[in-house]
């Protein structure tokens, strides 16, 4: 199963894929395995396993606090691969979302090798643009991993085209100019950005930043191939497994209710 299979399977059902994010090690290493398995069981087609980092410049307060908590509890990079393996062993599909410095420090090739060995399918790199990604291009080829780069409302046509060419699996479109965090309304910039992306590529497009409810998921599923939810899952963890499963189910229903407009 590769990422393209994940999106193909969703497309075959005329719906968008649901992609849920949770940091590894939050609230504990074992706890993150349990919650990610719950997300898989109750409807996430793909999970993003976050790597807690000391300086998360793309993250709002919710994910910052989760990363701080994980690090304070002693999270180590090697724990990430355990968490990914736990998801894969449970039949889930996982990619890693990480700031670049921990990968650099581990060694780009070694990190890719260990991620692939754990059953991970690829990596989302919020502070690595393709311009600086030569090592990652080579390592991802060598180890059969997908490269998920980001595009933003501020991206030029030229950069969207270049970023799409460098990406595989799917392209991550940030719905708003800003950091991660649940918002009340879906940005009007998102459909426009996805429309621009489609001019340049047929690669699936996932939309993230600010999504927290089934109705928002349905709205995004009307124009995107994947709906990405992060901070809302982190918040749900504070309320326990029932809340995580309920949120997943609500979102899973959302990505299916916009089927007619895909």
């Amino acid at each position: 199963m590769s990422l393209s299979d994940v999106f193909a399977a969703a497309r075959a059902e005329s719906r968008a894929a649901l992609i849920g994010y949770l940091p590894a090690g939050f609230p504990t290493v074992e706890g993150s395995k349990d919650y990610l398995r719950s997300m898989v069981e109750s409807g996430c087609d793909l999970v993003e396993v976050g790597l807690p980092f000391s300086d998360p410049v793309m993250d709002g307060p919710t994910i910052q606090a989760a990363a701080e908590q994980a690090l304070a509890a002693g999270f180590r990079v090697r724990d990430l691969f355990d968490v990914v393996a736990a998801v894969a062993d449970a039949g889930g599909r996982a990619v890693v979302m990480t700031y670049w410095n921990p990968v650099l420090r581990y060694g780009v090739d070694a990190f890719s090798r260990d991620l692939a060995a754990a059953g991970g399918l690829g990596m989302i790199t919020p502070d690595l643009v393709p311009d600086e990604a030569d090592d990652w291009m080579a390592a991802s080829e060598a180890h059969g991993l997908d490269r998920i780069f980001l595009v933003a409302p501020s991206s030029t046509e030229e950069r969207i085209a270049m970023t799409a060419r460098a990406s595989s699996g799917f392209l991550y479109a940030t719905a708003v100019m800003g950091v991660t965090g649940a918002r009340d309304v879906v940005s009007s910039a998102a459909p426009e950005l996805v429309g621009r992306v489609r001019e340049h590529t047929s690669i699936p497009v996932g939309v993230g930043l600010g999504v927290r409810s089934g109705s928002q998921a349905a709205e995004i599923a009307g124009f995107a191939d994947g709906v990405i939810v992060g901070s809302a899952f982190v918040s749900a963890v504070a309320e326990g497994d029932g809340a995580v499963r309920a949120l997943t189910a609500d979102l899973a229903k959302g990505v299916r209710s916009a089927a007619a407009t895909v």
């Binding site: 670049w100 919020p126 643009v129 600086e132 980001l150 940030t174």
Partner: peptide, 20 residues
């Protein structure tokens, strides 16, 4: 042109900031 002093420098920022 991309801001490298030898292997140093460059741009390790979110795509959203590249235009700026």
């Amino acid at each position: 042109a991309r801001g490298h002093f030898g292997p140093w420098g460059g741009r390790f920022v979110p795509e959203a900031l590249i235009a700026a």
